[in-house]
Design a protein around this nucleic acid. Sequence first.
DNA 1: ATTAAAATTGTAATCATTACAAACTTGAAG
DNA 2: CTTCAAGTTTGTAATGATTACAATTTTAAT
Lengths: 139, 139
Amino acid sequence: MNAYERLTEYGIKPSVQRMAIMEYLMTHFTHPTADEVYMALCDTIPTLSKTTVYNTLKLFVDQQAALMLTIDEKNVHFDGDTSLHSHFLCRKCGRVHDLPYSGKKREARELMIEGHAVEEIHHYYKGICKECSEAENEN
Amino acid sequence: MNAYERLTEYGIKPSVQRMAIMEYLMTHFTHPTADEVYMALCDTIPTLSKTTVYNTLKLFVDQQAALMLTIDEKNVHFDGDTSLHSHFLCRKCGRVHDLPYSGKKREARELMIEGHAVEEIHHYYKGICKECSEAENEN
DNA sequence: ATTAAAATTGTAATCATTACAAACTTGAAG
DNA sequence: CTTCAAGTTTGTAATGATTACAATTTTAAT
């Protein structure tokens, strides 16, 4: 599936900017911030505005074509993979890694928890990632 | 346990400001923002500075005497209850509710997940809370 | 009392995000 | 083709939470 199909599938009218941003999300699994998306695309689309990046990412999230991660208190991160999975934030390198969802499968299907209507599940883990731990042990 | 004991237990030297802020966290289960803590205390401690509230809450979190919740992209919230539990953010009223931790108990004790050293677990749920759903159904 | 370290304060800066209005595109209708 | 309105993009300016920093105050030991 390409970016064009992905957008139309989620009811988003495609445009050059929207396709470029969706394309970026679909090919990079780095959970970028809005600024990182902007920086990556502003060379190929010189007229791109940061406002457009913010607006577009917000649109994707509203249409559920992307996830907004609040794992990091400094910046919001975005994820083009909307399947149920968890995230790990490394305190050292700041990267966000994917983890399999380890909650009870039943819970993920539940619409209600303790009387509250659940629409989104976010499982975040923080610590030192594998790569940073290994780099440290090398001395 | 009072605020004084709680602070010393976590290796934090008590002061009027620190005790007031810890006392507030220990008696309010609203997961306040730094600003809410400041607003609640600035009447009784008229000289209180917002910087002190930010510094003190950060100190509590560093000493693991409080949790920093990044469930809301607008504001960081704080929680004086450091036991393992989950949180629910209501999209309507904006309140953060406590939920029991529903992950596998085994996982909570694991230090490693997929090679990453886990130091913090945050399980966040978002949707419409019980109170807001009921209020809506009354018409 | 003295004094150095620690804590608090107020102001100013930072910086991610949003508001807003102008400019541009698009696509349908004539 | 034009025209026009709706939707999209853009740049600039504002917002608002958080932090930096330097000055002041407090603490606790000598």
